[in-house]
Each structure stands twice: as C-alpha cells, then as structure tokens.
Design a protein around this nucleic acid. Structure first.
Lengths: 122, 122
DNA sequence: ATAGGTGCAAACAGTTTGCATGTAT
DNA sequence: ATACATGCAAACTGTTTGCACCTAT
C-alpha cells in the first residue's frame, strides 16, 4: 500500500462517494468509470489492504458478499432492506447485549443486523 | 420430502444428536458413519428442504458456511469462539434492539452474534 | 409401475493466488 | 533500477444443478 496508483485512487473514491457499504463488484463497476481496465483481483487486493490499515470497515452479512464502508463515525450496526437489498447504518447499540452470556465466556465484540423494509421502499 | 430414506434418517439423526449448529460438511461426516455412500449434494438438498419445512433453522454467520440446528427452544442468538471456531446458542435477547432505528424503517427481525472465547478454550 | 430421491460430475459465484508485465518511486 | 502493483487466468471453496440410475410407495 505504499504507491499511489490510478486504480487505488479510483477504488478509494468509489468508497468515499458511496452513501452506503458497497460490495467488491459495486466498487469495481464504480471505479471502472475512471480506470476501465481495472480488474476485480485488484479490487479485492486493495479492499483487503484497506481493511488491514483500518481505513475501511468490512460489513459482512450472512449469505451475501462482504460490503465495505469507510470507517467514519462511532460504533454502529446495520439494517438490510428485504425489499431493495441495500444496507444502511444504524446509529447506537443496545447496552445489555452480553447480559445472558453463559459463565466462562468472554465476549470481545458483537454484530447486530436488523432486517425489514427501509424508508424508501413501499 | 415425502419418502423415508436411509440418508434422510441419517442426516436428521446427525442434527438431532449434535449439541451445536453443524455445517453441511459436518453433517455429511457424521451421517456417513451410517450411510457411507452419502453424497454432499444430498445433504444440501435435505438441509434446504428441512429449513423450508421449519424443522431446521439456518445459522448463517458472515464469511463462514451456513450452519444448521434443529428448531427447538425460544428465540436466541449465537456466540462464535474465535479460538475453536465453534458456535454456541445464547439464550435471551436485549429488549431495546430497535431503539435507534431511523424514522420510516420497519424492522421485521434481527440477528445478533457475539464473538470471543468460549468457556472450553484457554 | 412410477414419482421422488440419490450419486456423480459438472456448473456456479465469490474470492484468492501465481506469474509475467507494467510503473511509481 | 527495482520493488511494488496490476491484469489475466487458473485455482479454490461452498453450493447448486442436470441427468441417469435407484427405490419407497
């Protein structure tokens, strides 16, 4: 991740301009507007590297390809619309999440996903 | 799903005897003890059918193959051990989960996964 | 007898990797 | 000049499907 390349810039731009988490294919489609010869392998390599540096956050929902969002604000969770398939950020977090964790288990982190219909869908 | 076959019985038995959600490969390994010629395609076909009838519950964690558990008790969530990779049931559920859902969103269901180290791992 | 199930292998989707080529430094 | 980055294609994993054969009913 030490050189500035056109593909790298295009990939970052795609993620910065998105208003929601994008998957690898969406990043490719968007970044190819600027670098048409961009390949999917390069997208994956850069996404992985950007997650490792902490610039990106991987949003992985069960059964679907991973999405990525620029690590911005505070701890939050996600809402997936069953109608349009898009994923949105949900601020905040319940505070009693670990309440019923069995004795002897140590909880390091958690994921919450809400499913339903978003405000833009009928 | 209308005939009683040996492979179907073996698959159901594997899931009934497991004390945790199993993925397709684990079901195959276990069921093959009784039906050695059992194929993975049959396992997938039966898992899908059993989920559709409601007998099974799919436990899908991001980035890993789906696991399946017999639909038994009450609403619950899951804990994944980062050390041994096994998944355990966690009883109960925080009650203020939908608290910060934005206006206009309708929440139909939710998934919570805790990550950490289980009681059996050092 | 016959519709439903099975096994095998091929097809698939998403992701990763090996390698020759290209390019920012 | 040279190490890092890219593109392509092949490999890989988990899952699904087409098809001929098998079997519970």
């Amino acid at each position: 991740m030490q050189r500035k390349t056109g593909q790298r810039r295009a990939i970052r731009l795609a993620l910065e301009q998105a208003d929601r988490p994008l998957n690898a294919q969406e990043v490719l489609d968007c970044a190819q507007l600027q670098v048409p010869k961009l390949g999917i392998a390069t997208v994956y390599r850069n996404l992985k590297a950007l997650v490792e540096t902490g610039w990106l956050l991987a949003v992985e929902l069960p059964g679907e390809p991973a999405r990525y969002e620029v690590r911005g604000g505070a701890h939050h969770h996600h809402f997936r619309c069953d109608s349009c398939g898009r994923v949105f950020d949900i601020p905040g977090c319940p505070d009693d999440i670990e309440a019923t964790t069995p004795e002897g288990f140590r909880v390091d982190r958690h994921e919450i996903t809400l499913y339903g219909v978003c405000a833009h869908c009928p």
